[in-house]
Design a protein around this nucleic acid. Structure first.
Length: 478
RNA sequence: GGCGCUAUCGUCUAGGGGACUAGGACGGGGCCCUCUCAAGGCCCAAACACGGGUUCGAAUCCCGUUAGCGCUACCA
C-alpha cells in the first residue's frame, strides 16, 4: 500500500490571490480530500524584492474564504536557504554541476553573438571545460561564480496525469544556473529541494510549468530522489482569450468577495473551470466534488473565465440558501452603506429580495431601499411608467393608500394586502397592474420587485403609507 | 527562431471507433406562468479548426497544416 499522497500549493506572495492560483489550490485540495492525502502550503518568497507579508496575508485569507484548508504550513521557502544551497553544492560535489564564472555581461555578449536572433541561446559550457587548477585559482582570487547544473543529453519524459506522456530532449535544454553568486537558489532548484524535503508525491500546478518540468526531473534524478506524479492544469483566460490580467477587471478572489459572490459559488464555479464530473451537473455540493474529483478528468485546454456564469451560479446558491446563512455579509454591507438596522430582523426582507438577486451586494442594496426610501432611485422604466400613466399615477396611488390604511399594523400581511388592493382595483375599475405598478415605483423607483403585496409587508405599514403619500404629493406638484 | 502544450456551439463542457439527427449548462431569442421581475416549465438558433490517412465505419486513432498559448533569465 503506497503512502497517502502529499500535495502542495506554492504561491509567491508578490500579488493577490488570483483566480488561476485559487483554482490550482482548489484542485490540489480536492485531490487531497479525495485521496485522504495531505495538503501543504508553501509560500515561495525567495523573490525578496517583490514579496510582502501583506500579500501573504491576503493569499491565506483568500484560501480560507474559499474553504481551501491546509494540513501543514505555511512554510516559507526563504527560510530554507541553507538546504537549497546544500543541495546545489551536493550536485557540484557529485560532478553534476559546475562553477561558472561568466558575468552577466559576458553572457549577454554570447547571446547576441549568434547569427541574429534566429538561434536560441544555449550556454556553451565554456566554464565546464575549465581545468580544476584554474577553477581553484579563480575561487581563491574571490571571483564570483554561480553553480550551473549539467543537463544530461538523454530524453526526459513523464506521464502527466492530465496530458499523458510529455517528452523533451535533454539536448534542447540549457545548463541552468541553480545557485546564484550570492548563494541563493534559483526557482527550479528551490522547488525541487523543497518538494523532496516535504515528500511531495503529486505536483499539481499550472501548465505554464510544463517547460520547467524536464529541468526539475533532471534535478530530482541527479539528487537521487524519486519523482512525484506531475499534473499540469490548464490556464484561465480572460473573455478575449488572453491570459487573465487586470485589464479584464476583477481577477483576485478578494474582488469577487467584495462584489458579493459567495465562497461556495466561487468554489463550485472554479471547480468546473477545466474539470468536469462527467455528468450533466452544474451545482455541485463540496462533498460531491470531493467524491467525484480526479486528475484524469481535468481538461487539457485552457478555459475562459465567464463572469456571467459565475453570477448565475451565485444566484442559484443565493436563492437556495436560507437568509440566516448570509445575514452577516448583508449586514456588513449595509453598515458600509450607512444603513442602520437597529434591532430589526432583516431576514424577511432578505427572503423577499434574494431570488431576484445575483450577488449579496444587490441584496444589500435592495434591503436598504425597503428600509429607507432615500435609497430608492427612480430608474428609466420607473420614470417611463409615471409619464405614461400621467395623472392616473397619483390618483391610483391615492386610492391604494386609502384602501390599505384600513389595515392595522397586525393585519398588515401579504394576504390581507393583496385582498385590499384587489378590492380597490375592482371598485375603481382598474386593471390590477395599474393599481400595483405605481406602488412598486413609488416604493422602489423601479418597475421590478417581488410581488407588490409582499413588498408592502416588508416595507412595513407606517413606512409604506408615508412613502406612498409622499409620492402622491410630489406627483400632484408637477 | 527553437522546444513544448492545446484545438467540440459566443463561453464552460459531455463524448474516447458504430448508441451522434453531436447531449447538458451559461448567455441570446420565443412561449407558458404572472400585477412587474426573478425563479420554474417548454421551445428555438448555435460547434467537432483545416487537409490527408487508418478503418466496413472517425468528433473519437495517426500524420501534416493553421491558429492560440507557455517556456527559452544569476524572475517565480
Amino acid at each position: 500500500m503506497p503512502e497517502a499522497p502529499r500535495v502542495r500549493f506554492a504561491p509567491s506572495p508578490t500579488g493577490y490571490l488570483h483566480v488561476g492560483g485559487a483554482r490550482t489550490a482548489l484542485f490540489n485540495w480536492l485531490f487531497a480530500q479525495h485521496t485522504g492525502g495531505a495538503f501543504v502550503l508553501r509560500i515561495e518568497d525567495t523573490d525578496k524584492a517583490r514579496s510582502t507579508d501583506a500579500h501573504t496575508k491576503v493569499i491565506l485569507e483568500g484560501l480560507t474564504w474559499l474553504g481551501v484548508t491546509w494540513d501543514e504550513g505555511p512554510y516559507f521557502q526563504g527560510a530554507e536557504n541553507a538546504r537549497h544551497r546544500a543541495d546545489a553544492e551536493r550536485l557540484l560535489a557529485l560532478g553534476k554541476g559546475y562553477r561558472c564564472f561568466c558575468t552577466k555581461e559576458e553572457l549577454e555578449a554570447q547571446r547576441n553573438s549568434g547569427d541574429g536572433s534566429t538561434d536560441s541561446f544555449k550556454y556553451d559550457r565554456r566554464c565546464l571545460r575549465l581545468p580544476a587548477e584554474e577553477i581553484a585559482r579563480r575561487v581563491s582570487q574571490g571571483r564570483s561564480s554561480v553553480i550551473r547544473f549539467r543537463m544530461p543529453d538523454a530524453e526526459i519524459a513523464w506521464e502527466d496525469s492530465v496530458h499523458g506522456r510529455i517528452s523533451f530532449q535533454g539536448t534542447d535544454l540549457d545548463d541552468l544556473v541553480i545557485l546564484r553568486s550570492d548563494g541563493t537558489p534559483i526557482y527550479n532548484m528551490a522547488v525541487v529541494s523543497d518538494d523532496i524535503a516535504m515528500r511531495i508525491t503529486h505536483v499539481i500546478r499550472g501548465d505554464d510549468h510544463i517547460s520547467n518540468t524536464p529541468k526539475q526531473i533532471a534535478l530530482y534524478r541527479a539528487l537521487g530522489a524519486p519523482l512525484p506524479q506531475f499534473a499540469h492544469v490548464p490556464m484561465i483566460l480572460g473573455s478575449d482569450g488572453k491570459k487573465l490580467s487586470k485589464r479584464h477587471g476583477a481577477t483576485a478572489v478578494g474582488d469577487y468577495q467584495d462584489q458579493g459572490i459567495l465562497p461556495t459559488a466561487m468554489r463550485n464555479f472554479l471547480a468546473l473551470l477545466g474539470w468536469s464530473p462527467g455528468e450533466d451537473r452544474e451545482i455541485l455540493p463540496v462533498d460531491e466534488m470531493v467524491r467525484l474529483f480526479s486528475l484524469e478528468a481535468i481538461q487539457k485546454k485552457s478555459a475562459v473565465f465567464d463572469t456571467a456564469k459565475l453570477e448565475w451560479m451565485n444566484g442559484q446558491y443565493l436563492s437556495a440558501m436560507p437568509a440566516d446563512e448570509f445575514l452577516g455579509p448583508v449586514e456588513r454591507q449595509l453598515a458600509l452603506m450607512g444603513v442602520a438596522t437597529g434591532s430589526r430582523d432583516i431576514r424577511p426582507i432578505i427572503d423577499a429580495v434574494k431570488s431576484r438577486a445575483r450577488t449579496v451586494l444587490q441584496i444589500a442594496e435592495r434591503v436598504a431601499v425597503r428600509m429607507d426610501g432615500s435609497f430608492a432611485v427612480l430608474d428609466a422604466k420607473g420614470e417611463a411608467l409615471i409619464k405614461k400613466m400621467g395623472p392616473a399615477y397619483g390618483a391610483n396611488l391615492a386610492h391604494a393608500v386609502a384602501a390599505v390604511k384600513n389595515l392595522s399594523a397586525p393585519d398588515w400581511t401579504a394576504a390581507n394586502l393583496i385582498a385590499a388592493i384587489t378590492a380597490m382595483a375592482e371598485q375603481n375599475g382598474l386593471k390590477l397592474g395599474d393599481a400595483m405598478q405605481p406602488i412598486r415605483v413609488a416604493l422602489t423607483g423601479s418597475t421590478v420587485s417581488e410581488p407588490v403585496n409582499e413588498l408592502l409587508e416588508v416595507v412595513g405599514r407606517d413606512n409604506a403609507i408615508r412613502r406612498i403619500e409622499e409620492a402622491v404629493t410630489s406627483s400632484s406638484s408637477h
